[in-house]
Design a binder for these strands. Structure first.
Length: 352
DNA sequence: TTCTGTTTACTTGAGC
DNA sequence: GCTCAAGTAAACAGAA
């Protein structure tokens, strides 16, 4: 994305819409997401025109943030307290501006159009496969089922592939042999497996998506694994338990990518962040946080067993409490013989 | 209290 | 004239 440059238009109104100004601010930020106050600040810094009548244009800008699907709201991390959420650009809104110019917008970005586009790209066979393979499909109301399918369709068209059903092995179209390649992170399972999660959510084995996101919006290449779970008493509540892995400063981290998950989040489709979901990493975290439980693989036909212990899902907050004591994995080692992934955690000593 | 976020309603201007 | 995008105003709720 282009930068606005140093043209400040002095006191004249810049020829950019609020959407463009906001996109500029977000794009110029290091993390590709900003709280509202920083968006204001960016605009006022760059364009003196907006140092006046702040109430008026800031109201308009807030309206645009809420109104336009091209902006997504990302909850604050627990270690970054403050007012309001972070705002980012929807990943599918990347080509919103013609020739990358903030001056010209192609067309209004609408989420449902993106979904339809995604569904349209699915062949009938694939769509049926997805539909028929949903273990929980018979239990869902039509609307919920549709939501799940749409989520699946989005997954397929985002450049990553669904679980390959014949071999039980995830396939990746453009497999990278970096330290955070799929092999290095989750290994190559010899059979379909599913992480056991405690109640109240019962994990299903299918669909399971292993996702790869190409670098976009300044975010590095990253992987996402998502699982679907069904609340035992509320059939409308589908959860996608997801985890992303990416490289930050050359180091693999499963902790830093709220945004790529949140970007897929819709109000009607709650996404619970359980980080990380790679079994080895889950167990390391379980140990680290004293959950007193080890999680295992189970055959795909089984759903998760009900566990009376406080659920990991319930314990998301504790998992997400980052902070100082949080361990950051420095590397993943994949053992080709055993097919297991070993994650080495190193205490963060403050960067010495 | 202030800020943030959502929603509704209306106006304006461009493009067809 | 119609549609759509964009801008503005305002009311309201909830969080910090």
């Amino acid at each position: 994305m282009p930068r606005p440059g140093r043209n400040t238009y002095n006191d004249q109104k810049p020829p950019y819409s609020y959407i463009a100004l906001t996109a500029m601010a977000i794009s110029a930020s290091r993390e590709k997401m900003l709280p509202l106050s920083d968006i204001y600040k960016f605009i006022m810094d760059k364009f003196p025109f907006y140092r006046q009548n702040t109430q008026r244009w800031q109201n308009s800008l807030r309206h645009n943030l809420s109104f336009n699907d091209c902006f997504i709201k990302i909850p604050r991390r627990p270690d970054r307290p403050g007012k309001g959420s972070y705002w980012a650009l929807h990943p599918f809104a990347g080509d919103m501006f013609e020739n990358g110019s903030f001056l010209r917008r192609r067309k209004r970005f609408k989420l449902h159009q993106q979904r339809q586009h995604a569904l349209g790209l699915l062949g009938e066979q694939e769509a049926n496969n997805i539909k028929n393979n949903l273990d929980l499909a018979p239990y869902l109301q039509d609307e919920s089922r549709l939501r799940l399918q749409q989520f699946a369709a989005n997954a397929v068209t985002s450049g990553y592939l669904p679980y390959q059903r014949d071999s039980g092995q995830p396939t990746i179209r453009h497999q990278h042999k970096h330290s955070f390649s799929i092999d290095n992170i989750i290994g190559t399972p010899s059979k379909p497996s599913v992480d056991i999660l405690p109640s109240p959510f019962q994990m299903t084995s299918i669909p399971r998506f292993v996702s790869q996101f190409a670098p976009t919006h300044g975010l590095p290449h990253r992987l996402m694994m998502s699982y679907h779970a069904l609340h035992p008493t509320d059939n409308n509540l589908i959860c996608s338990l997801a985890s992303t892995f990416g490289s930050l400063n050359g180091q693999v981290s499963p902790l830093d990518y709220y945004s790529s998950i949140a970007s897929l989040q819709e109000p009607a489709h709650p996404v619970l962040l359980v980080k990380p979901t790679a079994l080895s990493a889950i167990n390391l975290f379980s140990k680290h946080f004293g959950l007193g439980k080890e999680f295992h693989h189970s055959p795909p036909s089984e759903t998760a067993t009900v566990n009376p212990r406080p659920a990991l899902v319930h314990g998301v907050d504790s998992l997400l409490k980052p902070a100082k004591e949080l361990v950051v994995p420095k590397q993943f080692n994949y053992d080709h013989t055993s097919g297991r992934t070993e994650t080495k955690f190193v205490e963060d000593d403050g960067g010495t």
